[in-house]
């Protein structure tokens, strides 16, 4: 396959991400048996991260190449990648709610409301990407961001901000500080989103998310370290 250097590097990073997350899925089986909301959401986050890595790798295959259907592949995978990111943002918020609010029923009631911004992002990408409102491709099938791209990103950032606010609200809870330094979870994702802008070309969002979920699981295991499994 005739890859450009940067696309090959993205492909390598995404492959590593998929392997890491599959390993995590295998090792977290014991926790899913507890049938808690947060555990199920955590599993969904892992699946979404695999989707992100796969779509990102497909974008790396299609980007800058001109085979038949490459443009459609580039744009559709791009749309699916950003939709996956939006779903991931929602899942992080639900996970944190599930960890901080003891009553799962209350959290379940909140989920439809939390889904609304996500639905808005999905609609935006599904309508906007084929029309070039958010992301478009040039004559060499290389993608670039349009000005309206800031809109769905702003909604996605709102999820991150909500997570920060929640971390602040629940900061005094003893178990929260012991098991869940939320600010630490968000650092890898933010770093992996910002760092590629400095060099351009290699997408690190999926691996950033993999590091984040690994941190989350370490926090989860700290809790398991102290509580008895029955």
């Amino acid at each position: 396959m005739n890859f450009s250097d940067r696309n090959m590097a993205s492909f390598f990073v995404d492959g590593a991400t998929v392997l890491i997350v599959i390993g995590m899925i295998i090792h977290t089986t014991i926790y899913r048996k507890r049938n808690r909301l947060a555990d199920r959401v955590f599993f969904e986050m892992l699946i979404i991260d695999i989707c992100m890595a796969v779509f990102d790798a497909l974008v790396a295959v299609a980007n800058g190449r001109t085979f038949k259907g490459a443009e459609f592949m580039n744009l559709s995978c791009m749309a699916l990648l950003y939709i996956s990111q939006a779903i991931f943002g929602l899942l992080v918020l639900v996970y944190l709610l599930g960890k901080n609010i003891p009553d799962e029923k209350k959290v379940r009631k909140l989920i439809p409301i939390l889904c609304l911004p996500d639905l808005a992002i999905m609609l935006m990408y599904l309508i906007g990407i084929p029309n070039g409102y958010f992301i478009a491709v040039d004559e060499n099938n290389r993608y670039f961001y349009s000005k309206l791209y800031a809109l769905p990103v702003a909604i996605l950032c709102a999820y991150g901000l909500a997570a920060f606010v929640m971390a602040f609200i629940y900061r005094r809870r003893k178990d929260t500080t012991r098991y869940m330094p939320v600010w630490l979870y968000l650092i890898p994702v933010i770093a992996m989103l910002v760092v590629p802008y400095a060099f351009k070309g290699i997408s690190l969002s999926a691996i950033g998310v993999a590091i984040m979920v690994a941190y989350m699981h370490i926090g989860e295991m700290n809790q398991a370290f102290f509580e008895e499994v029955r």
Binding site: A16, A214, I218
Partner: peptide
């Protein structure tokens, strides 16, 4: 890419050292 791989490795291990009780 190698630098990213090293950075990712450090992020994983540092996170483990800071977070794991």
């Amino acid at each position: 890419t190698t630098l990213y791989a090293q950075g990712t490795a450090v992020a994983f291990v540092l996170g483990l050292m800071l977070l794991s009780v």
